[in-house]
Design a binder for these strands. Sequence first.
DNA 1: TGAAAGATCGTTTTT
DNA 2: CGATCTTTCA
Length: 788
Amino acid sequence: MDLLASLNPRQREAVLHTEGPLLILAGAGSGKTRVLIHRIAHLIQGVGATPESILAVTFTNKAAGEMRSRVSSTLEDSGMALERSPFVSTFHSFCVRLLRRYGAPLADLRPGFTSSFTIFDEADQVAAVKSVYREIGIDEKFMKARALLSAVSHSKNHGKTPQDFYESAEGPQDDKIAVIFEKYQALLQSSNAFDFDDLLLESVRLLKHSEQTRASLHERFRYLMIDEYQDTNRPQYELMKLLTGAAHNVCVVGDEDQSIYSWRGADIRNILDFEKGFPEASVVRLEQNYRSTKRILAAASGVVANNLDRKGKNLWADGEEGSPVLFYHAPDSDAEARYAARCVDRHLTENPGKNAAILYRANSQSRQIEEALRRINRDYKVVGGVSFYQRAEVKDILAYLKSATSSANAISLMRIINTPARGIGRTTVEQIENHARRAGISMWEAIEQMLSEGRFPARARAAVAVFHRLIGGLRKQLSDEPWYEAIPWIMDESGYRSMLESDGSIEAAGRLENINEFINAAADAYRRSESLDEFLDQAALVADTDQLDSSSPVLLMTLHSAKGLEFPLVVMTGLEEGIFPHGRSLEDPAALEEERRLCYVGMTRAREQLILIAARARRRFGGGSPELMMPSRFLKEIPRDVLQSVGQQVSPSWNTGDGYSLDLQAEQHEVRETVQRRLYDGPTYNSVENLSGFFAKKNLPVPANLRRPAQAKPRSGAPAQRMPAGGPAWRARHTSGYRLGEKVRHSKYGVGTVMKFEGDGDDTKLTVHFRSAGLKKLVAKFAGLQPA
DNA sequence: TGAAAGATCGTTTTT
DNA sequence: CGATCTTTCA
């Protein structure tokens, strides 16, 4: 079979461009994955590259697995079976392998580093921060551990050390964060542990530091490919640059309209800088959509056209008109769930063999939908959510294994020192912690010292001795027997099994089942001749159990997890202001644009039918009375002629009769008009080269996520910006003297956020979102706004 | 010390 | 509502 025959000219161009840097701008459903697969196949079959000289990086483990299997089946189809596969993995997995295998020189830079480091997942990170809190005597009233970690992560990804953080501190709060940051990092190092960010950063550091390592990698990997390039962050960009040797054989694929991870540090500058970093780069655009009907595509395009911050890509489809996008305005969230379930049920009955997805903004929304599906006996599968390896019981067992393999790991040790309860209480643990800190030794060493020096009271001594013997026994077990057998050993010897068995509750039974499943997973890994280290890496890096097989035809997942997937029927739920767009984004224009892109991603998952649902009322927390919800602004951005309302209409439109809704509707209309003008009049920033020039000419502020971060407060959207944030001082001032996103006070409406400018100087019309009064349009010189 | 009741709290997205 | 932390009491 000819590999190229099934491709359109653009796609073919991308596949055939094998030498030198290549940027593929690929719209939704434009066959991006196909191009990548065929490109790999072509490299092997046409160019004669060895499979192992190709490194392909994907965003999720799931995508990596899929790509691996599709490459081999494509090659098989064209009569070429591979014994070795290309190296396909996520950035994070790749870095783990890199550090384990080539990491030795890193010990120069990171004292105590050994290749048997452990990975701290999110729960470990939180535990580490809490441990630092205890050490310096503050509690979470200062700042939630997770919030603090966002600040730390943000700093790290922008190349900031605790010292840098301290120097740019804006007040005592920041000073404190800097201290915690430093101690957190020290704790990681003394535990020989890496958090997710460290995996990338230290890999970059290693490659910068060791020319030899760089050389071996260039020798090994001749061709580099990166999928979902719009969602890469700065360290990933640097890593890419370091990995492409002199040949610059790197191919990146992305779509800025689908950039939905800026909160995690994804940086659209990576697309811009690609051509700066590689001036000889070629650009290929894939703009033909093969996935969705014309109506679905029109609806999605209509929404995303409201973003100012985009390239104005021209996605077109050749296929069927399709049926209109349906909108159901449910009386409440329960009715929403029932309607979603009914749609899916009918679809599957009428189209046996097909599948469907129900999408929502936040995982917590899945509950009611699950209930509705159960009530009509429809099988479903929830993707993501609380992952298998995050379950408490599995984490406990993992902590035993980690404590045994890495005695420096204080976090794992703390987790299981009294689980199951063995009489080591708070006081005893504190004593050990203090001793370790004072003597500058690990928790494990502290335990040994204190035992031999007789520092415990009798009862505690006995308990600690039991624990000490237990871990010692586990180490022996691990060195003598196949490692997976250690898990049942732990269950029996630690008393974990009897703890669960004597409990007798349904939950305990479920936990036992989970652990059995875990033992099976371990045994499988062992049979695949994976080492314990590799198995533990997997557990930390593989978020969900990766139900690639997705045995059920009904999938429930967040909009984020739907990225990269497609379904004949897609039902999107919770299209309400505050839910989607999410409440946290309402006052930040850049965050709002990301929500809009997320909406675009969701809608373009649908092949044949797209159904949108909003609830008029929703209970936000368990108790209280239901809240009235405003329909999402995204609904109003969908061109009328492709949208059809269904179900009983309580009122003629979604206008609920209060001022907010009216204003909003007028507002949206104008936004659309302005955008149209901006997109098609004069130079569009259609080519990557003239992006910032485009904004300069239009006298527009360069959107925040296209701009270089200023010294003090970089970026928006990223978590750190939400914390102390005395207002986004880094944003350029409009000629009216206000800034986008700035907080202002109005004599009547109270505090609000500046969302939009029209006109210049004193005559500027400001659109301000007030917490109490909603969106208002005000003329700058009459509004009498005070800074808030 | 630890289980159990009570209070609190905070809710986005994920490698 | 549910997870998690705190307090209470045996």
